Simulated scan of single mutants.
Amino acid sequence: MEVFDTYRPLLFSIAYRMLGSASDAEDMVQETYLRYRTAQQAEIRSLKSFLMTVVTRLCLDELKSAHVQREQYLGSWLPEPVLTEDAETLVEQRESLSLAFLTLLEELTPAERAVFVLHTAFDYPYDEIGNMLEKNAAACRQLYHRAQERLAAHQRRFEPELSAQQELVGRFLRAAQSGEVQALTELLAHDVVVWADGGGKVSAARRPVSGQEKVIRFVQGLQRKALADLTVSVETINGGPALLFWTGGTLFTVGGFRIADGQIHGIYAILNPDKLAYLQRQLRKRNHTRPAAP
Rank of each mutant, 00 (worst) to 15 (best):
S203K: 15
A204Y: 08
A205N: 13
R206M: 10
R206E: 15
R206P: 04
R207Q: 05
R207S: 06
P208Y: 07
P208W: 08
P208S: 02
P208N: 01
V209M: 01
V209G: 03
S210M: 09
G211S: 01
G211C: 02
G211H: 01
G211Q: 07
Q212N: 05
E213V: 10
V215M: 01
I216Y: 03
R217I: 06
R217K: 03
V219G: 07
V219S: 02
V219Y: 01
Q220L: 08
Q220E: 08
G221I: 09
G221S: 05
G221A: 00
G221K: 03
L222D: 07
Q223I: 04
Q223R: 15
R224P: 04
R224K: 12
A226Y: 03
A226Q: 13
L227P: 02
L227A: 10
A228L: 11
A228W: 08
D229Y: 04
L230C: 02
V232D: 11
V232S: 04
V232F: 10
S233G: 09
V234N: 02
E235H: 06
T236Q: 00
T236V: 14
T236P: 02
I237C: 08
I237F: 09
I237P: 06
I237W: 07
N238K: 06
N238F: 13
N238V: 13
N238E: 11
G239Q: 06
G240N: 10
G240L: 15
G240Q: 08
P241L: 04
A242I: 14
A242E: 08
L244S: 13
L244R: 11
L244A: 12
L244K: 12
F245H: 06
W246F: 01
W246Q: 07
W246K: 09
T247L: 00
T247I: 14
T247G: 10
G248D: 13
G248Y: 14
G248C: 13
G249Q: 13
G249C: 09
G249R: 05
T250H: 07
T250V: 10
T250E: 11
L251W: 07
L251G: 13
L251V: 03
F252V: 12
F252R: 01
T253R: 10
T253H: 04
T253P: 05
T253Y: 09
T253S: 08
V254C: 03
V254W: 03
G255T: 08
F257D: 11
I259T: 02
I259E: 06
I259G: 02
I259R: 05
A260P: 05
D261A: 06
D261K: 00
G262T: 04
G262L: 03
Q263T: 06
I264C: 10
H265T: 12
H265D: 13
G266S: 04
G266N: 03
I267P: 05
Y268V: 01
A269Q: 11
I270P: 00
I270T: 00
L271G: 04
L271I: 15
L271N: 10
N272Y: 02
N272K: 04
N272I: 09
P273K: 09
P273R: 08
D274A: 11
K275C: 03
K275P: 00
L276R: 00
L276T: 07
A277F: 13
A277K: 07
Y278G: 02
L279D: 07
L279E: 01
Q280N: 12
R281Y: 06
R281T: 00
R281M: 02
Q282F: 09
Q282V: 07
Q282P: 12
Q282K: 09
L283M: 13
R284T: 14
R284A: 13
K285P: 01
R286W: 05
N287Y: 00
N287E: 10
H288I: 15
T289R: 14
